[in-house]
């Protein structure tokens, strides 16, 4: 950390210049800066979700005489959804380990499993939404249901985007191999996918478990 004076002049540090004004090492490499910037995006995404959680918590009892939480939610399907997303997140980590070792086949295989588990999650969620709308508990029914579909639907949209991103990265890996910029995109993808699972933890606790307490 405090290298300044005791180290004899490092001198020519960055592209031959004396001092870049960015410390004596110059800026961080892209492999640090890009994922860090994406980390900032993910955190701001969590701030967005916090607003949706806050409005859900404010409106959860505004049912307008319509169905309430304990009549709509089924813990068993939520448990299956949770497991699918948790294992998807885990397998995404395995894909990153394989990618770090530049093992194309294992990386692609783990990414396929990640995407399939994400599809299972999305399928169950869409089925739940369709079932709710079918019994007249759509987003127009009450303020509670508007907030519910906005919050959980927004997470579902993120998962959908993540699935498309996984497909894109598999194709890019296949076509371009392990180039540095492909590796950075993969790392950003894994940050995104893990963050979605973190948000789901809050959703299954606040919306589904607390919503179905006796």
């Amino acid at each position: 950390m405090s290298t300044g004076t005791e180290v004899p002049a490092i001198g020519l540090t960055h592209m031959g210049s004396e001092d870049t004004g960015l410390g004596n090492r110059g800026p961080q490499s892209k492999s640090i800066v890009v994922p860090y910037g994406f980390w900032l995006f993910v955190l701001s995404d969590m701030v967005l979700f916090s607003a949706l959680f806050a409005s859900y918590a404010s409106l959860v009892h505004a049912t307008d005489g319509g169905p309430v939480t304990s009549q709509l939610f089924n813990r068993t399907t939520v448990l299956v959804e949770t497991m699918a997303l948790l294992f998807s997140s885990f397998v995404c980590g395995l894909a990153m380990i394989a990618a770090k070792r530049k093992n194309l086949w294992w990386t692609e295989a783990w990414l396929v499993v990640t995407a399939l588990l994400g599809l299972v999650f999305l399928f169950i969620e869409v089925r739940e939404f369709v079932g709710m709308i079918h019994i007249g508990a759509g987003p127009q029914r009450s303020a509670f249901l508007s907030a519910f579909f906005t919050l959980v639907g927004c997470h579902g949209v993120h998962v959908t985007a993540g699935l498309m991103w996984i497909g894109t990265m598999m194709a890019q890996l296949w076509a371009k191999g392990f180039q540095p910029h492909i590796g950075r995109r993969l790392l950003c993808l894994s940050i995104f996918w893990h963050a979605l699972d973190i948000i789901w933890v809050a959703i299954f606790t606040i919306v589904y478990l607390i919503g179905t307490l006796p």
């Binding site: 492999s31 860090y36 990153m96 380990i97 790392l187 950003c188 894994s190 893990h194």
Partner: peptide
């Protein structure tokens, strides 16, 4: 001295 988030 720095690592990226998510890096194994």
């Amino acid at each position: 001295m720095n690592v990226a988030p998510g890096e194994p």
